[in-house]
């Protein structure tokens, strides 16, 4: 979010100083995250409504999700949040080597999450659980289970898109970090990207129990 910088470390022309620029980018990201909460919020409302309308169907459909892979992915994302925090810490104290190392670790963990997710999705294709004309679900709850899987794919799909964007942003930052763009004075892009990354992780922390643990009390 650094616009028209005159040099690598200077503040953009329309800000009075570095502090103002840093505060502006942080507030900008927080505001953006509020929009994200409202964006996912619509889906959570739909989920809450249909789960309360069709509790048995949701419980049964949820059993078809792979709990083990979901749990592993939760662990992977929590670790990626840790490496992200460490990246921000090293950026603050100007340790470029550590910053680069932790950014790579975060990107690797994020990609691992997506690979595991892709495996899960491909299993669903084999089991004919993709909503639409090819959907098959034995038992009395076919239509309602399809609703569950519609929401499952919307919610996890949207989350995965956010992960992909996050990995893209971190890759750009990694490239810039390697070229010495960030210093102890100028690191707000890392800080702000970190906020975004944690947000995406937190969304998953809600998605996991809502989707995978419906029938397990």
């Amino acid at each position: 979010m650094s616009n028209n910088s005159d040099s690598a470390v200077g503040h953009a022309h329309h800000f009075t100083d570095m502090d103002q620029q840093r505060e502006a980018s942080t507030l900008g990201m927080w505001t953006f995250l509020v929009t994200e909460i409202m964006f996912f919020g619509g889906l959570f409302v739909a989920y809450a409504l249909y789960r309360s309308m069709y509790p048995e169907a949701f419980a049964e459909a949820s059993l078809r999700l792979n709990l083990l892979l979901g749990a592993i992915n939760t662990g992977v994302l929590i670790c990626s949040s840790l490496t992200m925090v460490l990246a921000v810490r090293d950026a603050q104290s100007g340790k470029v080597k550590g910053l680069v190392r932790y950014l790579i670790a975060t990107i690797v963990l994020g990609s691992a999450f997506l690979v595991i997710k892709a495996f899960e999705y491909s299993h669903k294709i084999h089991e004919h659980l993709i909503p639409g004309s090819s959907f098959q679900f034995a038992g009395p709850f076919g239509q309602q289970a399809e609703m569950f899987f519609s929401l499952y794919f919307m919610m996890t799909g949207l989350h995965a898109i956010h992960m992909i964007i996050g990995i893209g942003v971190l890759s750009v930052l990694l490239y810039q970090a390697k070229r010495g763009r960030f210093t102890a004075e100028y690191y707000s892009p890392i800080d702000v990207a970190g906020l975004y990354w944690h947000f995406v992780d937190v969304v998953w922390i809600y998605l996991f129990p809502l989707l995978y643990l419906v029938s397990r009390h």
């Binding site: 509020v34 929009t35 994200e36 409202m38 964006f39 996912f40 919020g41 619509g42 889906l43």
Partner: peptide
Amino acid sequence: LATPVIAI
């Protein structure tokens, strides 16, 4: 606050 809701 409102626009993201219509988006989803």
